[in-house]
Amino acid sequence: MSILQFLGSTSGRWARIIAGIVLVVLAVVLGGWWWILAVLGTVFIAAGSFDFCLLAPLFGKPLQGPAFRKTFTS
């Protein structure tokens, strides 16, 4: 399974959400300029929650989750 297939799967979506939460928590705990991690974490949470993959367009695939997954089944 390629990394793109994993990111498009339900497990990949949950992995992005969890990674985003970890980054936000780290930013809050560390403080200072680490808030940049919170911004990145928020993007990961949004990508997983709203079902889109930011890496997909780099590989010529659609951004939206359902259309993205269809490219692997056909």
Score class of each variant (00 low, 15 high):
residue 30 L to Q: 12
residue 45 I to E: 01
residue 25 V to L: 15
residue 40 L to M: 10
residue 53 C to N: 10
residue 17 I to F: 14
residue 12 G to Y: 04
residue 44 F to G: 00
residue 43 V to D: 01
residue 8 G to S: 08
residue 59 F to T: 04
residue 60 G to V: 08
residue 18 I to L: 14
residue 61 K to H: 05
residue 24 V to L: 13
residue 9 S to T: 05
residue 35 W to Q: 12
residue 29 V to L: 14
residue 47 A to L: 08
residue 65 G to S: 10
residue 20 G to F: 12
residue 24 V to M: 13
residue 27 A to E: 06
residue 48 G to V: 09
residue 32 G to M: 13
residue 26 L to F: 15
residue 26 L to I: 12
residue 55 L to Y: 01
residue 46 A to G: 07
residue 34 W to G: 05
residue 11 S to I: 03
residue 51 D to N: 13
residue 19 A to M: 10
residue 65 G to P: 06
residue 18 I to Y: 12
residue 28 V to C: 15
residue 12 G to T: 09
residue 27 A to P: 07
residue 65 G to D: 09
residue 64 Q to A: 10
residue 46 A to M: 06
residue 55 L to S: 10
residue 32 G to A: 15
residue 9 S to L: 06
residue 45 I to N: 04
residue 27 A to F: 08
residue 45 I to T: 00
residue 22 V to Q: 05
residue 41 G to A: 06
residue 57 P to R: 04
residue 18 I to D: 07
residue 48 G to E: 01
residue 54 L to T: 04
residue 31 G to C: 13
residue 44 F to W: 04
residue 43 V to E: 12
residue 30 L to Y: 10
residue 41 G to L: 04
residue 47 A to C: 07
residue 47 A to V: 02
residue 15 A to H: 05
residue 15 A to G: 07
residue 35 W to L: 00
residue 8 G to P: 07
residue 8 G to Y: 06
residue 25 V to K: 08
residue 25 V to N: 09
residue 9 S to W: 06
residue 31 G to L: 15
residue 33 W to F: 03
residue 25 V to C: 10
residue 52 F to E: 01
residue 15 A to Q: 07
residue 23 L to V: 04
residue 12 G to W: 04
residue 34 W to D: 09
residue 36 I to L: 15
residue 47 A to W: 05
residue 22 V to N: 10
residue 13 R to K: 15
residue 38 A to W: 03
residue 12 G to E: 04
residue 11 S to M: 09
residue 62 P to I: 00
residue 59 F to M: 02
residue 12 G to I: 01
residue 12 G to Q: 12
